[in-house]
Write a protein that binds this DNA or RNA. Sequence first.
DNA 1: GTAAACGTTCGGCTCTGTCGAAGAGTTCTT
DNA 2: AAGAACTCTTCGACAGAGCCGAACGTTTAC
Lengths: 250, 250
Amino acid sequence: MTGTSNRSVERAFRIVDELAANGSGRVSELAERLDMPVSTVHNYLQALVSTGYVAVEDKEYATTTRFLEVGHRQRHRLEVFKAVSDELQDIAAETGEHVTLLVEENDQCVIVAVQEGPDAVNLFAYPGARMPLHAAAPGKAILAHMPDDRVREIIDRQGLVEMTKRTITDPDVLFDQLERIREQGYAVDEGERIAGMVCISAPVLDKGDRIRGAICVCGPQSRIDEARREEIAEIVQRAANVTQVNLDYV
Amino acid sequence: MTGTSNRSVERAFRIVDELAANGSGRVSELAERLDMPVSTVHNYLQALVSTGYVAVEDKEYATTTRFLEVGHRQRHRLEVFKAVSDELQDIAAETGEHVTLLVEENDQCVIVAVQEGPDAVNLFAYPGARMPLHAAAPGKAILAHMPDDRVREIIDRQGLVEMTKRTITDPDVLFDQLERIREQGYAVDEGERIAGMVCISAPVLDKGDRIRGAICVCGPQSRIDEARREEIAEIVQRAANVTQVNLDYV
DNA sequence: GTAAACGTTCGGCTCTGTCGAAGAGTTCTT
DNA sequence: AAGAACTCTTCGACAGAGCCGAACGTTTAC
């Protein structure tokens, strides 16, 4: 949080980010894109290869499965991930839609697990995908159960970025909604993050009422009318409840 | 490959490895385990946090979901992963056992995807998990379709480490087996990597006969007799075949 | 309330990462 | 074929970045 940092570490991960974004890259290509000297990039890539986190084949550098490994290990230690166990799959089967488990991390809302039901639309949703907390149902469900001043801090740091015309960009409107979410026990968004998509999400709280994550169902607006929305809200809340119980016995 | 390296990068990833291995860690704990000065570890952790790959909560440092993200993005670019699509799930349902997709990376055999059938035994198998190529059916299936001198190089670099009493440790025996695997189209191991487990695996080749990965079914010896083994071999080979066809049309 | 353990900041020294330039390959053009 | 244009890799001298001991805060334990 203070100014202390390490240039090499920063640069190494900038290269990793670039590789992850583009799938792979060559020395000079990366050098140009990152605005670093070719020989420097070359050195970093060598160093990264020797760690095993990057591999090279025919001068094409790419991240290795080590990232998958580290990611999966971490996920398995996320208590809420263990606690949700088969619930996601059950909901996906029951609703047919796209089901996700999300947690808060670094002021953002991150997908931890994805389960696609038989009718799920093809979203760009994969474990690790990030989105702003204010701009979707799961994020709002999470914010609703954070202390108000923490929410304010997050708004200060991240702002209320507009993702679609319907995204909430006024803090007062947001706080009103959070209040309502607490009352009704679940959150809804209609195209606030992705136009034409409806998301319904219930928070997962632990024994001490601390927010641990959210379970979310997403589907196209055309398929999810008022009645179906309540139906799904029921299902999602039930799953969140089961998860909460599991959480306390882990 | 040459001596060129970068101490900071090495150290940063050593810390990441340590965090991944133990789930999380505190400054002094890591300092001791990695034999580095406390202040140095502190600096690195700060740097890592600022990259977003590590997060800290109550002095506990842990890797973030960023690793999951990078890993999943990479996986989606693995052609063989796309090509195998729903085959794994189908095999898992059909056989009831533990089904995996594996590829070669850095002289090792790495799990890319896991699908557990209803009767699957609880293996310590997750995406990113690594094993020696010579010590299990999928690795042997992969080796069988590499040029001989490449296999020799791998043996030279990695050795034939003994994992159980049945692991192949003699190069001649290994080469004989590879020959047989090529003839019969699939590989088998009986407790060569994990005592009591039988694995049956078929290679996935592309148009140019280059090896791209292997599909593997694992189950307890007690449940998989000679007849069932052939049955599974059929299924695995069929799936590998479908994958190969998909691969050529991606 | 005191002691012990841990986390964080500071700053001077040194070693390490840095990057230009040259060398070695590779691919495309003429 | 031979050159031109490119990329990758090696080398080495220099400067500034990382390093770590020690001092300072802060938390935990007893």
